Every structure is written in structure tokens, then in C-alpha cells.
Simulated assay, not measured.
Amino acid sequence: MTIIQNSVDIHKPIAEVYTFLADLNNHEQLMPDNIYNWTSTADEARFTIKNMAKLALKISQRIENKEIVCIPSEEAPFTITLRWRVLETSPKVTQATFVIEAELNMMMKMMAAGPLQKLVDHQVNKLQETLA
């Protein structure tokens, strides 16, 4: 299992950060430029990654003010889970951690680990910008 993650402190109460992340409609704002054909509901999102693949994700679990878990809703090139974890560090500061867990063979890991890390880094930075 390959685990790729990054965290950021957001100067907002945990409920506000969680509510934003719990709605997949908001996640389009966090995506990099190579994502297009985005469609979403509160529970599902579909999009295309330029020169790579189409993905369909759904929220499989919500734990209020703690975690949102997304899994593919259709067949994906590999087993993958995306998790947003939120932790209150003070009443007005929330630590948000984005974790991608992927079942990658050695060849896939060499090809995908860099782009997945860039995606994680981009999304936590965009979350901080968007909720600033």
C-alpha cells in the first residue's frame, strides 16, 4: 500500500472546514488545471485527468468533524482511497490532512507517486487559499 499525504492549518473552525469538504461539489475548487469535464453532487464526482484517465468517486463514509472517505464508484486503474481528516488544533484553527492510499505495483508506483503527491500538495494548498 502506497500512502501519500500532506497537511495544512486552516484558520477556520473545524465545523466550517468539515462542511466544505463533506460536499464533493466544493472539491472542483481544489483541483489542478489538468482536471476537466467535472460534474458532481454532494456525494459523487466525475472528472477527467488530462492525458490519463476518467475517474468517478463517491463518498463512502462521513464522520462528522473528523473524516471524509472517498472511493471509486466505477472501476479504477488501481485500488485507491482518498481521505480528508480534520483535527481541531484550537477553536479557530483546523488541521486538514489529505491522504491517498493506493494499491500500486512497483511500475505504477514509479509512474504515479509523483503526480499523486503533486495532487495532494495542490489540494491542501488550494483548501487553505479557498477558506482563507
Rank of each mutant, 00 (worst) to 15 (best):
R83E: 05
Q95G: 07
T97N: 08
M107N: 04
E88N: 07
P77E: 02
P91Y: 04
I71G: 00
M111S: 05
M107L: 12
P72K: 01
A96S: 10
T81N: 08
L82T: 05
E67F: 03
E67D: 04
M108I: 06
K66T: 11
T97G: 04
N105V: 08
K109G: 05
S73I: 06
M108C: 04
I68R: 00
W84S: 13
L104I: 07
P91M: 10
I100H: 10
V99C: 10
T97D: 05
T97I: 14
T97P: 07
L104A: 03
R83F: 02
F98T: 03
I71Y: 00
N65Q: 11
A102L: 10
R83T: 11
T89W: 04
E103A: 13
S90L: 11
A102E: 07
S90G: 10
S90H: 08
E74S: 12
N105T: 08
L87R: 06
K109A: 10
V99E: 14
T94G: 01
E103F: 11
V99W: 03
I100L: 14
W84Y: 15
N65Y: 01
C70I: 01
S90V: 10
P72T: 02
V69D: 01
R85H: 12
I100C: 14
A76S: 08
V99P: 05
I80W: 03
R83W: 00
I68K: 00
I68V: 11
V93C: 15
L104C: 03
S90M: 11
R85F: 11
L104M: 06
K109H: 07
V69Y: 02
T79D: 12
A96K: 01
A102G: 04
A96V: 12
M108P: 03
V86G: 00
E75C: 08
A102P: 06
E88M: 13
K92H: 11
M106I: 15
